[in-house]
Each structure stands twice: as C-alpha cells, then as structure tokens.
Design a protein around this nucleic acid. Structure first.
Lengths: 166, 166
DNA sequence: CCTGAAAACTACTGGCT
DNA sequence: AGCCAGTAGTTTTCAGG
C-alpha cells in the first residue's frame, strides 16, 4: 500500500513537468547564470512564472544544486584514471566498510557499485602518473579487502557533460 | 618559441592562484549560488576583491561554466551504464569518425578515448534496461567499425561530484 | 500567469594603503 | 597589486490581482 502511494507521487512529479519546465531545465543545465528575464524572453513569458517554476523545480528536487565547473588541467589535475576494483569478501559489512573508506578519499571523484565481474568503478583525478602510483601505493592498497585493481587512463575527452537529455 | 610562451602563461596562471582564489573555487564548486557577499564574510573581506577574483577566475578559464545539477531519477533516467567499446580498425580517420558519431548521441553523457585493451569508455543514461537494449540495437551497433561492446550497469552511486580537490 | 515594487545582488568607479 | 567604500543598474523575491 505504501509502495503504491510512492509510485503515485513519482508519477505526479513526472506529469507536472510540462514542456516549459523541461525547457527551463535544459537551459539551466547548460548555463545556470541565465537570468529569469532571459529565459522569460526565450519563452515569451514574464519573469514571475519562470521564477516560480525554478523555485518549484528546486523544492521538488529536480534541481539538486548549482555548481561551478572547474578546468581540471588548469588546477593541475590533468590525469583522469578509471580504476576497476574487485573485493575479496562480499559480505554486507565488508562492502559498507569499503564504501566509507572510498568516500573519504578526495582524489576519488566518482565511485559506483557495479554489476558484473568488477565490483566498483572509480574515477580518480591526479596531477601526474607518478602521483597516481603514489596514491595507489599509499592510499588505495591500504584499504582492506581489495582483491584486484585494474586501472585505465583517459587519453582524450571526447565528450563530458553533466546534462541529462529531457 | 611559441610553445615556450604558452608554457610561461600556464605557469603564471598556476602561480597566481593563491589561497583566497582556491577557497573561492572550492566554495563555488560546491554551491555556485553563494553570493560574493557571503564569500566575503567567510574570508573576512569585502565584496569587491571577491567579485574581481571571480571574474578573473572566469576569464582565465579556471571556471569553465555554471550549471544546474539535475536529479537523474526524477527526470526518468535512473539507469547508468558504462559501455566499453573496442574498434575494429584503428586508423586516424576511423577514430575521428567514431568520435563524431558518439558526440551526436544525446544518450551518451561522457566518452573517453582510453589507454589499454579497450578503446573507448562511454557513460550512458537510460530510463530502463529495455531502453538500453533498444539503444544498442538501433543506435550504437549502427555505428561503423565497432568491434567489441561490453556494458556494465551501476547498481548504486557511492560518490558522484563535479568537484576537483585544490 | 500578469503587474509592480521592495530587497538584494552585481558590476563598476574612484580612492586608499 | 590588492583592498575598501559607495553607487547605478539588474535581478531576485514576493506582494496582490
């Protein structure tokens, strides 16, 4: 009964995203500095409805946050590594412990628990390959319960966006 | 001579990032809606230097853009797939062609040319597994020159941020 | 969804150390 | 060079219709 209720809630959230809301989300995903006035002009509306819709998109959780995207090369983090991790033991407590340790590593920008042979996929930013080596030696390999580590490096970014298609 | 000049430019960019600049970047990476006034209060400064520093960080390219982060589940894209792609032929023209075709796929949020056995790593957002199946069938497999495709799905996001550590 | 108006912020100037 | 103070112009925010 409770699950049924939640499903209805989600459905309402989706249904009330009309084309105007979607357009606003598309614009703000690209450039969150666009003012309500600019968006209003694009949609042939006044600022009030745009403002109210943005506030509703925020309060309903569609917009999670607003962030500045920083250039990784200019801040001396040109190396992007993807590291596949397999654990030795797969008990619940082992997995939780691993996740908590990973969360505290500032070098790890992303971490997913994956389906398949490999348990976790990590995205790691580094100043250099030597730094990555040192990171594995002094931090990653110190984490308990790691079985296999397999790293590949990004040679070139073909595409990289935080936008979702709507 | 030209390369030498560019290197000097980069060096200057790095050197002139003092602790105040780094703190500003850290704050704006977390929440770009923080006003110059709020940041000024945190750093015991007035709005003018904060404002000027932000503008300089933008014009020098340290801040690439400001974006809204949208909740992928609420916009009906709960499935995140990582797809490893190996090409059949690795000539320059083949790679360029593949990259251009990938860029035009809205479902592909990220794509990297990788070192190692696998040529490309793709991050793909989908409403459902059935949609992913259809995407592979009707779009991905239609791209020329693809050798092996290997997909794994994210079961849980442990960590996911656009922040770089400074 | 509109008009309109107050509060807040941005963006700029000039002057200080 | 970098910071402060003050101000014009926008933008945000929130009334009432």
């Amino acid at each position: 009964m409770k699950v049924f209720f939640i499903l209805i809630e989600l459905k309402n959230n989706m249904e009330t995203l009309d084309n105007t809301d979607k357009t606003i989300l598309r614009i703000l995903q690209r450039d969150s500095k666009k003012t309500a006035k600019e968006i209003a002009n694009l949609l042939n509306l006044t600022v009030s409805p745009i403002y109210e819709r943005i506030k509703r998109l925020e309060s309903r959780g569609f917009i999670e946050k607003y962030v500045a995207i920083v250039n990784n090369k200019l801040v001396n983090l040109p190396i992007t590594a993807y590291c596949q991790v397999s654990l030795q033991s797969h008990g619940e407590s082992f997995i939780d412990k691993f996740e908590n340790q990973i969360k505290n590593l500032k070098e790890v920008q992303e971490c997913y628990h994956m389906a398949g042979q490999v348990d976790f996929l990590l995205k790691i930013n580094m100043p250099s390959l030597e730094d990555y080596h040192e990171f594995m030696r002094s931090k990653l390999s110190k984490i308990d319960n790691i079985g296999v580590l397999n790293t590949t490096f990004s040679l070139k970014v073909i595409k990289h966006t935080s936008e979702y298609y709507l």
